[in-house]
Design a protein around this nucleic acid. Sequence first.
DNA 1: GAAATCTGGTTTCAATATGCAACCAAACTT
DNA 2: AAGTTTGGTTGCATATTGAAACCAGATTTC
Lengths: 128, 128
Amino acid sequence: MTRKRFENSSCAVARALSEVGDWWSLRIVLQAMYGTRRYVDFQRELGIARNILGDRLERLVTDGVLRKVDVGEHGCRYEYRLTDKGRDLFVVVEALRQWGERWTAGGDQPGPVVRDRVSSRPVAPLRV
Amino acid sequence: MTRKRFENSSCAVARALSEVGDWWSLRIVLQAMYGTRRYVDFQRELGIARNILGDRLERLVTDGVLRKVDVGEHGCRYEYRLTDKGRDLFVVVEALRQWGERWTAGGDQPGPVVRDRVSSRPVAPLRV
DNA sequence: GAAATCTGGTTTCAATATGCAACCAAACTT
DNA sequence: AAGTTTGGTTGCATATTGAAACCAGATTTC
């Protein structure tokens, strides 16, 4: 049976999850925030299967989270760049990072510290 | 092939997603935040298949996001309650809600406003 | 200028996950 | 005593995933 979808739910969380709630999408977005833009680089750095990557990139593009930019002169090089909508997912990713940092058994190494680009101070914990 | 897992990734986001990054877990957590605690209620309100629900609840319990409380006198009634770890996911859920509210085509109705329990003011947008 | 390589995919196949409905057993209600 | 509620489990059909092979155009290397 087809996986259930929630695009039209009245719940904003459900709608958000129906765009980026699957196993790979947020990781692709995170990788994009790290600066990755090319198909092959996503593939290599995430270790995702190529067909799945193609499918996810396509969906993220149709959902307006990424846009596919034709770079290179004769139409054979493309880049997937975050849109404003995609960049806005940073809060979500950062919330996940803080939660993971706090509650999941980290690997041995502490992981990179996310810093403000201007002040270069580590970002403050998110609060509600 | 088995779905890829990231429990031991050095990336906190990947570790977080390996606990709550699947299609249903965050929705179950959200529902729990709304007050749902019983198997049947989760099932009815989410419309999730019962076997999947059982599997997810079990995993969330082993991961320490929920705990299963034996309520009722002769061990036939249970409740699944959020732990501190689970409650801490509120920031993630709220970030998703704000993103969904802003970027996804809502249903017609505006959806509930999340308010501070003490001040009863709507919560401020999350920022980093 | 031919061969190899890089890029961005698509196809095929096996294994796994999901959804649905039916079934089950212990407790509780009527 | 019979039926209902709760919390599942099982079996089956379909979807999704992952791995690897394949492919074609552009670019680089020899």
